[in-house]
Design a protein around this nucleic acid. Structure first.
Lengths: 207, 207
DNA sequence: GCAAACTGAATGAATAGTTATTCATTTGTA
DNA sequence: TACAAATGAATAACTATTCATTCAGTTTGC
């Protein structure tokens, strides 16, 4: 661990604590993550979370927001990149979904830790609800354009978006649960296989 | 609630407590489920869980085993039913995956509550690991036979099994998270849509 | 036929252990 | 010296587990 200067900008400390929280949730689960774990993982003292986040609950919420923002921002950068064709945007979207940053096992563990509690804690859901909608809208519009451009008359863009999204959720779960012999590149190939069934002229030869 | 006779066979009490545990996990999450919650939901006294399960952890494990067994037994009954054709078995498999019993929101919440903790508790994983393998093997073999029977030369049965399985995991997550305007029949239609891309002569017209 | 003793399931008050939160004190810096 | 950030011992709240007691049904002895 790096040494901790006595004093740091609040933003740095908050990020440091969020990073430690991600590791603790991955290691001990949401229920098993204690303030003592988090602060000692960060190499700081017990009271510091309450100083920077007030409560444990708020730390958890900020942790979820952190990984949510990372995901949303990554996809926005692709969707609003004028230099990419529609086909390239879709490929970039899939590549991002199965990139190192997103399929990091600690972060996957955090996602599913929160999904497992959403029914009981509507707050968790509300953090993601609106941007999930936005991502779906954007992805659907890409499929829509590709349908026109490629003359895929029988494709249903809404259906393809729902199916692709569920598929990638399921593949992430596999990546989290399956211990070995299966990595993000394999998962990406499965996702591409599905897109190739819908847009054979665009994605059949992509690895 | 029904009145509780003072004394009951152990098996009945255990099942009664497991049912209550499922409801509590769905309502309060794994971390928020206390012995007091479970026993009061079951209409019994605080000490009874320790009497029948020894510890809270063992109650949770038996609860996971209960819903796992229910799922595995349902699929086994289909796979080993000699009266069904391969096509009928696959359709029955999908119908079961999106049946009332399996897509019950309380039970889905329990599944994902445990998935969210598996990385930290290998025990949870080990309960499911072997039968997940078995289910995959069986389903792959069905796809394999259908490939031959239907002359689907370019289908990869292993890939289709992985893809279908991930897809249904993701659709279950959607069913758990999405509050309204989307039900198990819709999810089933998405799964069927995928199978139709692989076996168009068998599943294109199935709802 | 009847009550007294026995049995084991069920109860819930008490206990022991854990953990989030507080805040008086310490420490480095300006 | 003054100040803000950080510390960690102490506190308060919560919760799993224990176990002496209660209770209803069954058996035994007369």
């Amino acid at each position: 661990m790096s040494e901790n200067p006595r004093s740091m900008p609040a933003k740095t400390r908050r990020r440091q604590l969020i990073k430690a929280t991600i590791k603790c949730i991955a290691k001990n689960g949401l229920s098993g993550t204690t303030m003592a774990d988090v602060t000692s993982k960060a190499g700081l003292s017990l009271g510091i979370v309450n100083l920077h986040f007030e409560t444990k609950e708020k730390l958890l919420i900020e942790t979820l927001r952190f990984i949510s923002d990372e995901y949303r921002n990554g996809l926005d950068k692709i969707f609003f990149n004028d230099k990419l064709s529609v086909e390239e945007k879709i490929i970039a979207h899939v590549s991002f979904d199965f990139s190192r940053a997103i399929t990091d096992r600690d972060k996957l563990a955090v996602w599913f830790a929160f999904w497992g509690e959403t029914k009981s804690r509507p707050t968790y859901m509300s953090i993601c609800a609106d941007y999930i909608d936005e991502i779906a809208k954007n992805l659907t519009s890409l499929f829509s354009i590709l349908k026109k451009e490629g003359n895929y008359t029988s494709v249903d863009p809404d259906l393809v978006c729902i199916c692709y999204t569920a598929l990638s959720d399921g593949l992430w779960l596999d990546l989290l649960l399956t211990p070995k012999g299966w990595d993000a590149d394999d998962a990406k190939a499965v996702a591409m296989h599905y897109l190739a069934t819908q847009f054979p002229n665009n994605f059949s030869h992509i690895r």
